[in-house]
Design a protein around this nucleic acid. Structure first.
Lengths: 210, 210
DNA sequence: ACAAACAAGTTGCAATTGCAACACAATACT
DNA sequence: AGTATTGTGTTGCAATTGCAACTTGTTTGT
């Protein structure tokens, strides 16, 4: 899902001007956005990567969203609660900022590319929403076994096959499911012993139930 | 957050026509939308209430979102995965359907109310996203105690007071945090014993830490 | 006003899980 | 090529949690 899909290069350049676009470079650990600024903007990671993090009342940092090249963030979210949200560059990165009000209230030209842009943006946000619902579904499963099986079934459904490939390593999966890594490994072992799954080489898993 | 805020009644009526609006009444348990239909629409609950539910591979129903009067749902989400999502009326309800394509590609009139509508819609979706991130933050806490305290701190921050009012009952809270209700009650008791919180009459709680 | 339905509160016990502390394999770094 | 870092896999043990089975309040409906 690309924010610029179905938009020609010429239209794009014109539109970026129209939306008061500014490209800014950040060093590693640079603060791309924090709750203190409260401008409504849309940001696009042109190169590099960044994390959207929440700093909670105890000072703990939690990664809410990982942003990679081409990904989009919406600053509107920042003013919602008194939550301290920040976006931090993980490496040397370039970000394109667009003004929210110029996205919503388009210029007089009524260019169709602008509609396409809003369509893309809306679909990106909806897809984020959907990812969240999925994760919530997994997190609300009672046992690690259930979390794993539901996750595997998501993948199997997506790939339309009993043979699935994990898109992340076990350490990351444990974090995603919010369980202890060693406990996850143990449960995987039990699942193998019970012949519910078979782990093939590398990161491939075969589901015996579907 | 109202989808029609800052839009006059006259503009509204015009716009609804423009977006091919259709009002449909449903009986209790009526299917407002299911994954099988794949039209891109925005739905608004005019009266009554409904649940957005996921039916998983075992046939278990999980409520993803509770929709009340004035709330909005986006059917775009339905075509994302092979997930079986449905919206079911919980009581006699009326729903206004608007065509997504007519929302994005506006009519020639270039009316400002249309921009306002897109602004409202976008902010609603962003606020849903934000609610999800909050819930994920709570669900990823390791212990019931941490879940409760983070939840209380959200509320205290929102109300800017150590004295908070729970917006739901304990049964609903246990479900929201995905923990056993009796275990939640037990943890509340421990929190009281440890003087971390004090439970006032009804549903008011006083936080001793902040 | 009464019953029925729902919510709060309690507790023993067993199952699940997190934690700590490892060994070992794979990858990345210089 | 050798070292440092990161990921995998294992296990004992203690802490947390879910479950079951209750009792006691509190609402709601007729």
């Amino acid at each position: 899902m690309d924010i610029f899909s179905n938009i020609t290069k010429e239209d794009l350049e014109r539109m970026i001007k129209c939306m008061n676009g500014r490209r800014i470079k950040y060093k590693k650990n640079g603060i791309i956005l924090s709750s203190f600024q409260n401008t409504d903007i849309i940001g696009i990671i042109c190169s590099g990567s960044a994390d959207l993090i929440r700093i909670d009342y105890n000072g703990n940092k939690a990664v809410i969203e990982s942003l990679k090249e081409g990904n989009v963030f919406e600053s509107n979210m920042f003013n919602m609660d008194n939550n301290e949200l920040s976006i931090i560059a993980l490496e040397q990165s370039e970000v394109l900022f667009l003004e929210y009000k110029n996205i919503i209230n388009r210029c007089g030209n009524n260019c169709s590319c602008h509609n396409q842009f809003i369509d893309n943006l809306f679909k990106i946000v909806i897809s984020k929403l959907n990812n969240n619902y999925k994760r919530i579904h997994l997190l609300t499963q009672k046992t690690i076994r259930e979390k794993l099986l539901e996750y595997f079934k998501f993948l199997a459904n997506q790939e339309n096959s009993k043979r699935i490939r994990l898109p992340m390593n076990y350490t990351a999966l444990a974090e995603y499911l919010s369980v202890d890594r060693s406990a996850l490994m143990r449960e995987l072992k039990y699942l193998k012993e019970d012949r519910v799954i078979a782990v093939l080489d590398n990161r491939y898993i075969l589901l015996n139930t579907f």
